[in-house]
Design a protein around this nucleic acid. Structure first.
Lengths: 213, 213, 213, 213
DNA sequence: GATGAATGAGGGTTCATTCAT
DNA sequence: TATGAATGAACCCTCATTCAT
C-alpha cells in the first residue's frame, strides 16, 4: 500500500464514521419527535432542529420523512430483539420472568421515547410496522410453546400463553408510556425519574404471584 | 304564555338539540382523528370529512382545533369518572376489582379511540390534560387509602397502593391501545373484535391471584 | 318565489359567473406558461403571477398543477374540434382545403400559445394527452376516407390520406410554433404580427397545386 | 523529444480524448432532457443520471445548466449547417429539393430530440438561440436569392422565397416533433419507427408538384 | 481531476383560520 | 345559521450550485 492509498482509505473510513454518527443523531431526534407527535404531527423542521442541523441538511441524509420513520421503527424492533438475546426461557418461569421484567422495565424507563413511538404507530393501526413484525410473531408463538410447557410441568397455573405475554408487555411498557401521568399522580416534579427498583419489584411480584399454581 | 312564545321557545329548544347532536358528531370525529394522528397530526379537514360537514362549518362550531381537542379530553375524563360512579370500593377487593376490571376492559374495547387519544396526550407530556387532572389525583389518593385499609385488614398482601392502580390501569387499557398488535400476533383479521370475556377473565385472575395475601 | 329566494339565487349565479371568469383567466395564464416552459418548467407561482392572483389563491381554485395542465389540454382539444364544426368535406377538396387552411392558420396565429402548449406535450411523448385523443383518431380516419373518395373521383392525385393530413397540419401550425424564428429571419420587430393573408395564400397554393391530379 | 515528453504528451492527448468523449455523452444526455422538458423543466440531476455520472461530476464539467443548454444549441446549429454542406442549390430546384428533403427528414427522424430541443427553444421566443442565428439568417437570404433565380428562370412558379423555406422546414421537421402523435393516429406501437421512405416521397412530391410552374 | 457534503432559494401543496355575504 | 372565498404560514422536498478535501 502506498502512503496515498492509506491516507485515502483512512479519510474514507473517517467520512463513513462521521456519517454514521450523524445518522444516529438524526435517528434519536426523529424518535423523540415521532414519539411526541406521531408520523403526521412531527415536522422535518422540528427533527432537524433537535438534531442541530438545517432542514436541508436533514433531507440530504434521509430520503423522506416516512422513510426515516420506518427506519426508526426498524431500529426499535432490532434493539428490542437484541435486548432479550441473552435471556433463556429454559431456566424456568421464575428465573426468566424476574430477568425479563427487570430488563424490560429498566430499558423502557431509560428510553421512554422508544416505547412511545412504538405505541404511537400501533395505535394508528401499525400500517408501517406490519412489514417488520413477522419475526415478532414467530417469537410470540415460540414463547407460547415454552409457557405451555411450564403449565404442563405444573410450574405455573393454567393461563392463556399469548395473553400472558400481552399482560406482561402491558405492565412493563406502561410506566414509560404514561410517565407524565405517573409523575402527576405521585406529585413528582416534571423531569424527575421514577423509582425503577420499586416498579420492577411490584410488577415482578404481581406477575409471579399471579401465576403461582 | 302566548302561543307565539310557546312556538318560539319550542323552536329554540329544537335548535339547541340539533346543535348538541352536531357537536356530539364532531366530538366523535375529533376523537377518532386525534387518537389516530395526535393533536398536531390531525387536520380539521379530516375531522370535518369524518363528521360529514365542510371545514368552514366545522370552524363555525368550534373555536379552534386545540379547543376542540381539550373539549374532547374533558369529555373523556368525564365519561370515565361516570363509568365508575356505581362501583363501591367498600364492598371489598375481590368484589370491587372484578367489577372494575370487567367494566374497564369492556369499555376500552368498545371505545378504543377514547383510550388511544388519552394515551396519545399523556405520551406528549399531557400539557393540555393537566388542568383537568386534579380530580383524578384526588380519586387516586382516596383509592390508595382504601387499598391500604384492605392491606391492614389482611384482605390483600402488602403492595404500593398507587402502583397497584397503575398496574391495573395498564392491564385494562392495553388491549384497546394495542388492538392492531394483538390482532396481528393472534392472526386475526383486521376488523375483528377480541374475545372480551377471555381477556377479562385472564386479567382478573392475574390481579386477584397476584394480590392474595 | 319569495324575494329572499330571488336574491339568494341571484347571488349564487353571480358567484358561479365570477368563478367561471376567474377559471378562464387562470386557464389562459396556465396555457401561456405551459406553452413557454412545459409542464415541469412552468411554476404555479408564475401562473399565479400571470393571472394576477396569489399562489395560495391559485391552489384554492385548482386541484394540482398537473390537473390544471390536463384541463388546459382538454380545453385546447375541445376548441379545435369546435373550430371545424362548420366545415364540410363534402364540398370537395378545393373549397374545403381553402376554408380549412385559412381558418387553421389564422386561429394559430391569433393563439400561438395554444399551438405551442399542444406541441410541447406531443414532444414529451404526449403522456397526458393520450387519454383525450381517441376522438381525434376517429376524425383522422373519417377524413382519410373522404380523401380517398377525392382520389377515386380524380379530384386530387393519389396521396397517402393520413400523411396528407399531417402535412397540412405541419404547414398550418408551423408559423405559430416558430413565430420567433420567422420574425428573426424576416427581420421583424419582436412583438410584430405576421402577414396572415400572405401565409394563408402561400400555404393554400402549395397544397392545392401539390395535389392537382 | 525525450521519451518522458512523448509519454507525457500522449497522456495529455488521452486525457483530452476522454474529456471530449464524456462531454459528448453529457451533450447527448442534455439534449434528450432539454428536448423533453425544456430549459427550466430539465434538471441537472436527470441529465447526470442519463449520462451515467453524479450530479457533482456533471457540474464539474459544465459551468452552468444554461451554459450547457447554449452549448447544445450551438452544437445543433453546427450539425445542421454541416448537414447541407455538400448540397448545391445550383443544381436546380428538383435535384436540390429532392436531396435536401431526403436528407433533412431522415436526419430528423434519426435524431428527433435534436429537432425537439430546437423547437422548444424557438417556442420560448428563442432568447438564447438568437446570438447563434446570424449565420442562419444570412443562409436564408442567400437561399432566397437562388430561389428567386429559379423563379426568374421559370423553373418554379412564383412563390415567396422565404416562406417557401419555412414551409419546407415545417414539412421536414414535423414528423420528428410530433412522433408520438403520428404513432398514435397510425396505431403504431410506442417505440416503433416511421416509414421514412414513404414520408420522404410524399413530402417531396407535394413540394415539387406544388412548385411546378 | 473527482467526490461527498452542504446550502439558500424555490418547488407544489396543505394548514388552521378569517372574511364576506 | 351557513358557506364560498381567501390568506399567510407552514408543510415536505428538490433545485442548481458551491465547498472542502
Amino acid at each position: 500500500m502506498t502512503r496515498a492509498t492509506v491516507t485515502r482509505s483512512a479519510v474514507r473510513a473517517d467520512l463513513a464514521a462521521r456519517r454514521e454518527e450523524l445518522m444516529e443523531t438524526i435517528r434519536q431526534a426523529a424518535i423523540a419527535e415521532f414519539s411526541t407527535n406521531g408520523l403526521h404531527g412531527a415536522s422535518t423542521q422540528a427533527i432537524a432542529d433537535r438534531a442541530g442541523i438545517s432542514k436541508t441538511k436533514l433531507h440530504y441524509y434521509i430520503s423522506s420523512k416516512e422513510d426515516l420513520y420506518i427506519e426508526a421503527l426498524r431500529h426499535i424492533v432490532d434493539v428490542w430483539a437484541e435486548l432479550f438475546h441473552g435471556l433463556d426461557m429454559q431456566s424456568g418461569p421464575e428465573h426468566f420472568l424476574r430477568a425479563y421484567i427487570d430488563r424490560k422495565i429498566r430499558h423502557a424507563l431509560d428510553h421512554p421515547e422508544v416505547a412511545r413511538m412504538f405505541t404511537s404507530e400501533v395505535m394508528r393501526g401499525a400500517p408501517l410496522l406490519r412489514p417488520l413484525w413477522e419475526t415478532s410473531r414467530q417469537a410470540t408463538i415460540t414463547a407460547a410453546t415454552v409457557i405451555e410447557g411450564w403449565i404442563a410441568a405444573g410450574l405455573i397455573r393454567p393461563v392463556d400463553p399469548v395473553l400472558l405475554q400481552f399482560n406482561i408487555w402491558a405492565l412493563t411498557q406502561h410506566y414509560a408510556l404514561h410517565l407524565s401521568e405517573v409523575r402527576f399522580m405521585l406529585n413528582l416534579p416534571d423531569g424527575s425519574s421514577l423509582d425503577a427498583d420499586q416498579i420492577v419489584d411490584e410488577v415482578t411480584e404481581l406477575v409471579l404471584q399471579g401465576l403461582r399454581p
